[in-house]
Measured scan of single mutants.
Amino acid sequence: MGSVRTNRYSIVSSEEDGMKLATMAVANGFGNGKSKVHTRQQCRSRFVKKDGHCNVQFINVGEKGQRYLADIFTTCVDIRWRWMLVIFCLAFVLSWLFFGCVFWLIALLHGDLDTDYKDDDDKSKVSKACVSEVNSFTAAFLFSIETQTTIGYGFRCVTDECPIAVFMVVFQSIVGCIIDAFIIGAVMAKMAKPKKRNETLVFSHNAVIAMRDGKLCLMWRVGNLRKSHLVEAHVRAQLLKSRITSEGEYIPLDQIDINVGFDSGIDRIFLVSPITIVHEIDEDSPLYDLSKQDIDNADFEIVVILEGMVEATAMTTQCRSSYLANEILWGHRYEPVLFEEKHYYKVDYSRFHKTYEVPNTPLCSARDLAEKKYILSNANSFCYENEVALTSKEEEEDSENGVPESTSTDSPPGIDLHNQASVPLEPRPLRRESEIGSRR
């Protein structure tokens, strides 16, 4: 089982795998120059863009038009607004034209077009017409509009002379109601789609790998820009990579689940303020055997998904993003964004995407760390350097704002901070800030 798991979770494809794949392509008759073999020097295209759209195009789909027309309502909801407006206008105009032609044909076959009612006051002739005051196609078209929109100006009306005319008036009224219901329903469904809710759900630009509770963890940050909550919010993550099976089958995008606390339930989050999602790199993680150097040379993509129900409509929305291997910062942490004021908490989104480097973060893999092949620094050293990194950030910001350097908390000259780390230190809580992250 261990060997199978290692093969499945191998992220960085070796040169031997690339040569094996190329040999397979030639042997199977696919070596026509169009096949692409992804190596370390040639990274694959992003499968999920940063804005959440999937970078996929469908080609050679059989009976595409028929399949889309069979699900016309979903098609109308998914198309762009400009095409929705075109369909909206065409549906009414074509129905008016169709029934206008029908009423014109009825008048033509009944002989109503030969009668001039402007110079004739004989009401008996008017009563013999199928539709009064309809003696041309324009008049028939206007009567069709008046019937379907129930305008009723009063000059044109159907008589009991022709039952077919009466039937067409009733039929057009029913068709008009159906068109109204369909168009209004599609427009309302399109307006109520929770897709735009994703514009106020954000992911951090970069993911980070750092120590948390004595273990290497992959972390990324999510935030909600609205005050309205995302009900039943939960997160998922998958690692996408290519691999070759033991039988020699090439899988271009193998999807591997990344555990973010599904078993323990901590994948469900209360997204009021930005939260750091934590994936513990343990023996079940696809990143277990990867060191910093392996991450730098790897070719994979981590897709992160945030799902929840919109509070206003109770409709489920899904926000997506992805991180390539070069977008994962090893040995970094996110800057705090949640600050405790006197009577409330304040979230500073200008710090949302910012990170700071944490010294002495192990550069080895989580496996080597678990097997004690890498000796961690003293816990006080880690905490102290973590505090120094934050303090230096604040000093830089104070210097930019014009604060005198004498007010900063610099260490005395001639003292090495790293050498001082081995000395037991008193706890130094942050002056006014605390970061709330997901705790395992």
Rank of each mutant, 00 (worst) to 15 (best):
193 K>H: 08
139 A>K: 03
431 R>C: 13
195 K>P: 14
392 S>V: 05
199 E>H: 13
327 E>K: 00
237 A>V: 07
248 G>T: 06
125 K>Q: 12
74 T>G: 14
229 H>G: 06
36 K>S: 13
283 E>N: 10
351 R>T: 15
340 E>H: 05
350 S>V: 04
298 A>F: 02
188 M>T: 15
137 F>P: 14
381 S>L: 05
6 T>G: 07
181 A>Q: 06
383 C>R: 14
238 Q>W: 10
393 K>M: 13
404 P>I: 11
353 H>C: 05
208 V>R: 01
151 I>D: 03
70 A>V: 03
168 M>L: 12
75 T>C: 04
349 Y>C: 13
313 T>I: 04
243 R>E: 06
46 R>E: 02
131 V>E: 02
176 G>Y: 02
54 C>K: 15
229 H>L: 12
335 E>G: 03
304 V>T: 09
231 V>R: 09
145 I>P: 01
156 R>I: 02
217 C>V: 12
314 A>E: 14
5 R>V: 07
31 G>V: 06
320 R>H: 11
25 A>W: 08
26 V>Q: 13
222 V>M: 06
90 L>K: 07
327 E>T: 00
21 L>A: 09
142 L>P: 02
179 I>P: 03
141 F>I: 04
423 V>W: 08
249 E>K: 15
385 E>C: 03
86 V>G: 05
335 E>A: 06
140 A>Y: 02
131 V>K: 02
399 S>E: 13
219 M>W: 04
157 C>Q: 07
405 E>M: 07
386 N>C: 08
148 Q>R: 03
44 R>P: 09
203 F>E: 01
350 S>P: 02
23 T>Y: 05
19 M>Y: 06
43 C>R: 05
305 I>R: 10
410 D>F: 08
116 D>G: 12
121 D>Q: 15
227 K>D: 08
112 D>N: 06
28 N>D: 15
100 G>Y: 01
237 A>N: 00
387 E>D: 12
299 D>H: 08
16 E>A: 08
249 E>R: 09
369 L>R: 02
233 A>H: 13
103 F>D: 00
259 N>S: 11
223 G>R: 14
114 D>T: 14
352 F>T: 00
266 I>P: 11
272 V>C: 08
183 I>T: 13
354 K>N: 12
126 V>M: 11
370 A>W: 05
111 G>Y: 02
285 S>P: 00
33 G>A: 12
302 I>S: 00
235 V>C: 11
246 S>D: 13
387 E>R: 03
182 F>S: 05
195 K>G: 09
82 R>V: 15
190 K>D: 05
75 T>P: 15
152 G>P: 07
187 V>F: 11
232 E>R: 08
171 F>M: 06
197 R>G: 10
74 T>M: 05
96 W>E: 02
359 P>N: 12
67 R>T: 04
435 E>N: 14
103 F>N: 02
135 N>V: 07
272 V>S: 10
77 V>I: 13
175 V>K: 01
121 D>R: 06
89 C>D: 02
294 D>F: 00
232 E>F: 09
56 V>I: 08
429 P>E: 14
363 L>D: 14
240 L>G: 00
80 R>P: 12
103 F>Y: 08
249 E>A: 12
66 Q>F: 13
90 L>D: 02
381 S>C: 08
407 T>D: 14
360 N>R: 07
87 I>W: 15
8 R>Y: 08
370 A>I: 09
265 G>M: 12
376 L>N: 12
286 P>F: 02
99 F>A: 01
299 D>M: 07
78 D>G: 10
36 K>L: 11
337 V>C: 10
194 P>H: 03
369 L>M: 08
307 E>H: 11
348 D>G: 02
312 A>P: 10
35 S>T: 09
25 A>C: 09
120 D>P: 00
45 S>Q: 14
207 A>H: 03
331 G>F: 00
396 E>T: 10
316 T>Q: 09
308 G>R: 04
224 N>A: 13
202 V>P: 04
194 P>F: 04
275 I>W: 11
8 R>A: 10
416 D>H: 09
182 F>D: 02
226 R>H: 13
292 K>N: 05
113 L>G: 02
386 N>F: 05
258 I>L: 13
50 K>Q: 14
389 A>H: 15
370 A>M: 07
23 T>F: 07
291 S>A: 10
317 T>R: 13
151 I>P: 06
217 C>Q: 11
366 A>V: 00
406 S>L: 12
113 L>N: 00
104 W>F: 05
69 L>V: 12
271 L>F: 10
213 D>C: 13
430 L>H: 13
47 F>T: 09
286 P>M: 01
316 T>I: 06
436 I>W: 13
252 P>A: 12
150 T>G: 14
172 Q>I: 02
165 A>S: 03
120 D>E: 00
130 C>T: 00
89 C>K: 05
241 K>T: 05
75 T>F: 13
280 E>C: 10
161 E>N: 10
12 V>F: 02
386 N>A: 14
344 Y>S: 09
428 R>F: 12
257 D>W: 08
9 Y>Q: 14
260 V>T: 06
2 G>I: 06
51 D>W: 02
116 D>C: 12
396 E>S: 11
395 E>D: 10
225 L>Q: 11
187 V>C: 06
319 C>P: 00
206 N>C: 05
280 E>Q: 11
214 G>I: 02
98 F>I: 15
